[in-house]
Nucleic acid binder design. Structure first.
Lengths: 115, 115
DNA sequence: TCAATATATGAATAACTGTTCATATATTAC
DNA sequence: GTAATATATGAACAGTTATTCATATATTGA
């Protein structure tokens, strides 16, 4: 394999190779996207767009089980997608920041689906 | 399990359940994110930010094999993340639209990593 | 038409991941 | 301290997926 339109693409390829983020950075970005790439987790995020919620209400909103939701919340939390605060017996979950909201909205715009 | 701060969260939960996108829509969004959630595919996208490229140069830029890259490109193409055009023997790949660029940049901003 | 180059793809394997079930931890009310 | 409630977690299983290897298709130039 070899490509001979050096003039046109070689420079882009060279720049791309030189500016490729480190393996660690790529994996960090990938992990963030992976966190929001599962239907069960996306539903949680769509739910949280309507406001801070405890686990019980998240379970109700997405229609799943407590255990499954709790496992997914851990992944979202570890990925920095949601944040938590305790209020008595309850742990209240919310979207971590405006970037998360923005990415969700971009995806829906891209796919031409209402939110 | 039952949650008694009805006054505070029940309304958010109710709105969330009512406005939850359909299973099909959620899966479409999830599939899009899944397409960009693998390090090997993300590297391809980071490379393509520097311009349209043929497979040979993508392979060179990301440091993988022709077969692996080709499999990943198929997934990115099916997910509407990249688009292609043929030029002689070569298939030139590029990012599908500005939304893709924007999402990549948002993620890097979110993670405070340079791009 | 034939050889060479570029890209795609099917099958197989190995690694990863989501859910379920059972159970553990933590907080509150008594 | 004990019971009740809310949330988290470990293990196991099932389903998914990325890579490799071998091979197929498509385009070009002779």
């Amino acid at each position: 394999m070899q490509c001979d339109h050096e003039s046109e693409h070689a420079s882009a390829a060279k720049r791309a190779a030189e500016n490729m983020p480190s393996e660690e950075e790529v994996e960090k970005v990938a992990a963030s996207f992976k966190a929001i790439s599962e239907p069960s987790r996306l539903k949680i995020l769509f739910a949280l767009r309507h406001g801070e919620m405890c686990v019980y209400h998240i379970v109700a909103a997405v229609g799943s089980t407590q255990s499954a939701v709790s496992h997914q919340l851990r992944i979202l939390r570890a990925g920095g997608i949601v944040k938590t605060r305790r209020e008595g017996q309850n742990i209240l979950y919310s979207l971590a920041d405006e970037h998360v909201v923005a990415v969700l909205e971009l995806a829906c715009t891209h796919l031409k689906c209402k939110l």
